[in-house]
Nucleic acid binder design. Structure first.
Length: 442
DNA sequence: CGGGATGATTAGTT
DNA sequence: AACTAATCATCCCG
């Protein structure tokens, strides 16, 4: 303690013209002493040089001896002088590096993914809440979701633990090095700048290790994420019941198969269809159930594309809803259809994109405003077929087994399915697709 | 395995 | 923003 570390700044700079060592060397009495001093200095240097070869205790002892050596201040001054010169060259190498762009990228990503952010980021919590709210019955989805979150938080935990470990190690090491340097500054000149430099070197080293950690964390998150996103693409067919419910709605609203938000929600609930959690996670909209919307979108387009293929199905569901509604009450059968009065498919008036004139009205069962079955096609290539079908009055030909016939009402030539009162009532296709009366065969 | 069925995604439209 | 049309990716049945 008696000896403060001799940092250079405390020594001043003005010794260039007056080297302390020279002074010491010259303040002897006789010329012959010169030899002895030289010897002395050589001794000291020798001791210094070999100090690292010794055991700790020995070294410690020798250090103390050196510290007390009468030549020490002189030697120290010399070292200071040399240092002063070399420092200049060191300074040049010292550049303030800008923050590593890649590190910044990693940081940003970790933050965005909620790994490095505040504990249990509000964002993910909100997403979870949204998922829970949107998917009331969806145990499947929320399970998947929580799985994702569990894995993410696992990653986050590992990341934080490791990060903390690194930080601690870094601090420990830094303190250690600084102590060492301070200790050493007794025997050799060390500028604060040098210590600073050393510290920054240490920090750089550690931060490069940290970067590796961040990188692998990012990778892990990416992998998790991609696996999660892939999962969303994995298609699971709805169960039969769900499909039936959806189909029922579709065919009973064939005139306007665009369920409202509430209707979609309702259907989703009935079918136990939940929003894919991804939708909730990636888009924070609380709106309609995209799964149901997807279904209706697909259904509409596919129905429209190939009505014939769906005739059977349509009739089936129409019949079902008819029974349910118990309305029917088929009153008059219009004269003009060759077929029996009742043969009406579900009414669909959804207007085919191109040409409204393809359908023909054949019969309308309801006195009030309702149209009977309709057949329509928008595809030019189907026209012939349709004509054929129609001419057969519900008989079928090639692709179109249907027994449906169009009535013009509710159909607008221009676009979109017109809305029409629920068709419900109309049908009674008696028997499935069969319902073909009249001259079917020919 | 091939191919149709089907849910999801995407580009473009209104 | 919701829809259509096309397409992708997977399921599923023969």
């Amino acid at each position: 303690m008696d000896e403060q570390p001799r940092l250079m700044h405390s020594h001043g700079v003005g010794m260039a013209g007056h080297p302390g060592l020279a002074q010491h060397m010259q303040d002897g009495t006789g010329g012959t002493d010169g030899e002895g001093r030289k010897q002395d200095i050589g001794d000291i240097l020798q001791q210094i040089m070999t100090i690292t070869d010794q055991s700790l205790d020995e070294a410690q002892a020798r250090k103390h001896a050196l510290n007390c050596h009468r030549m020490k201040p002189a030697l120290f001054n010399v070292l200071c002088e040399i240092k002063e010169k070399t420092v200049l060259s060191i300074r040049g190498a010292q550049e303030e590096e800008p923050p590593d762009p890649q590190l910044m990228r990693l940081d940003n990503m970790l933050l965005a993914e909620g790994v490095s952010g505040p504990e249990k980021g509000g964002g993910s919590a909100a997403a979870a809440a949204a998922a829970a709210a949107a998917g009331g019955a969806g145990s499947d989805n929320s399970a998947e979701h929580s799985d994702y979150r569990a894995k993410l938080s696992q990653i986050r935990q590992i990341y934080h633990t490791e990060l903390e470990k690194y930080e601690q190690a870094c601090n420990e090491f830094t303190t250690h090095v600084m102590n060492l340097l301070r200790e050493q500054s007794r025997t050799r000149p060390i500028s604060p700048k040098e210590i600073e430099r050393m510290v920054s070197i240490i920090h750089r080293k550690f931060s490069s290790i940290q970067m590796q950690l961040k990188q692998s964390t990012c990778e892990a998150v990416m992998i998790l994420r991609s696996r999660f996103l892939d999962a969303r693409r994995k298609r699971r067919n709805f169960n039969k019941q769900a499909t039936e419910i959806l189909n029922e709605y579709f065919y009973s609203h064939l005139s306007n198969p665009y369920p409202s938000e509430e209707a979609k929600e309702e259907l989703a609930k009935k079918c136990s269809i939940t929003v894919s959690q991804v939708h909730v996670l990636l888009s924070n909209k609380t709106s309609s159930n995209p799964v149901v919307s997807n279904w209706f979108g697909n259904k509409r387009i596919r129905y429209k594309k190939n009505i014939g293929k769906f005739q059977e199905e349509a009739n089936m569901y129409a019949a079902r809803t008819a029974v349910n509604a118990a309305s029917a009450s088929a009153q008059g059968s219009q004269a003009n259809s060759p077929s029996t009065p009742n043969s009406a498919g579900s009414a669909g008036s959804f207007n085919m994109s191109n040409s409204g004139d393809l359908f023909m009205s054949v019969q309308s069962l309801n006195g009030d405003s309702y149209q009977g079955a309709q057949v329509g096609a928008n595809i030019q290539s189907q026209v012939d077929t349709l004509r054929h079908v129609i001419s057969q009055a519900g008989g079928y030909s090639d692709g179109l087994p249907g027994s449906q016939i169009y009535s013009p009402q509710g159909i607008s030539a221009n676009g979109g399915w017109q809305d029409a009162p629920t068709p419900s009532s109309v049908t009674s296709p008696t028997e499935g697709p069969g319902s073909v009366h009249s001259d079917t065969s020919n």
